Computed example of a mutant assay.
Amino acid sequence: MREAIMQASAQTANDFILSIDALTVSFDGFKAVNDLSLYVDENEIRVIIGPNGAGKTTVLDLICGRTKATSGSIRFDGRELTRMREHEIVHAGVGRKFQNPSIYEDLTVFENLELSFPQGRSVFGALTFRRDREVIERVEEVAELIFLKDHLNTDAAILSHGQKQWLEIGMLLIQKPRLLMLDEPVAGMSVAERIKTAELLNTITKNQSVIVIEHDMKFVEDIAHRVTVLHQGKVLSEGSMERVKNDPKVIEVYLGH
């Protein structure tokens, strides 16, 4: 009986694109993430919110291998990420965007997207890379998705802040990750840009799962399939935005301030 239950639990865990179990990371005795368990479905937008110091960015660092876990498990698409290096995690299908845009401002939008095309990312691929019809079509497809098709020949340096954010998202999308992680993607954006970013994220979940760290509650309401609230490295509350924002514990430690 016990064996059957364990097999059923394993099968349930395998149904998720990302399964985090009992994850802990300790820095000089301080547990930035403390016995955290989190499960993300295929094609889901999961938003992680919480006060400063709650461990939100550290969770992303742990998933992408930038920080190594003290204990616990992170399984992505059936593979244990805690045993893998950063570049191996990227190749496995995990894309990460940091808070500030990281693009090549002296290159055009087209060139930024082309540079991120998977074939050109290895040493051999870079040596043999050609701008063929497949590359051009993929760049144009992604540029349209990120609202920059009319700016393909524009230098990235003169884009607005929001357009630079979209370009960096496009540089990840062109690699076709199965999990995309975004840290405060609408910080500094205009209201119109935030609306379009919500539209973008709701579109790309046809092919990707997305984890978003965000403080803008209106934006969270526009995109979240499910919300996880962190506090002191642990899950404080989880569920729909409606459930979370009415949770007395969340109001006390986060929304109430």
Results as ranks from 00 to 15, higher is better:
M1W: 07
I5L: 14
A10G: 00
A13Q: 14
A13C: 10
S19H: 08
A22E: 14
V25P: 02
D28V: 14
K31L: 11
D35Y: 06
E42H: 11
N43G: 11
N43P: 03
E44N: 02
V47Y: 00
N52S: 13
A54D: 06
K56V: 06
T57F: 00
L62I: 11
L62Q: 01
K68L: 12
F76R: 05
R79N: 11
E80S: 13
L81N: 04
R85F: 11
K97V: 07
Y104T: 09
E105A: 14
D106S: 15
L107C: 12
V109R: 04
N112Y: 00
L115M: 14
P118R: 11
Q119F: 09
Q119V: 11
F124P: 07
G125Y: 03
A126R: 10
L127Q: 10
R130P: 04
R131W: 10
D132T: 04
E134S: 12
E137T: 08
A143E: 02
I146R: 03
K149S: 13
S160E: 06
H161R: 13
K164L: 03
L167N: 06
M171R: 05
I174H: 04
P185D: 08
G188R: 01
M189G: 01
M189Y: 00
A192C: 08
I195D: 03
A198D: 07
E199C: 00
E199P: 06
L200H: 07
T203H: 15
Q208R: 05
I211N: 02
E214L: 07
E214P: 01
D216K: 08
K218Q: 14
V220P: 01
E221V: 08
E221R: 15
V227R: 03
Q232M: 15
L236M: 11
M241V: 06
R243F: 12
L255F: 04
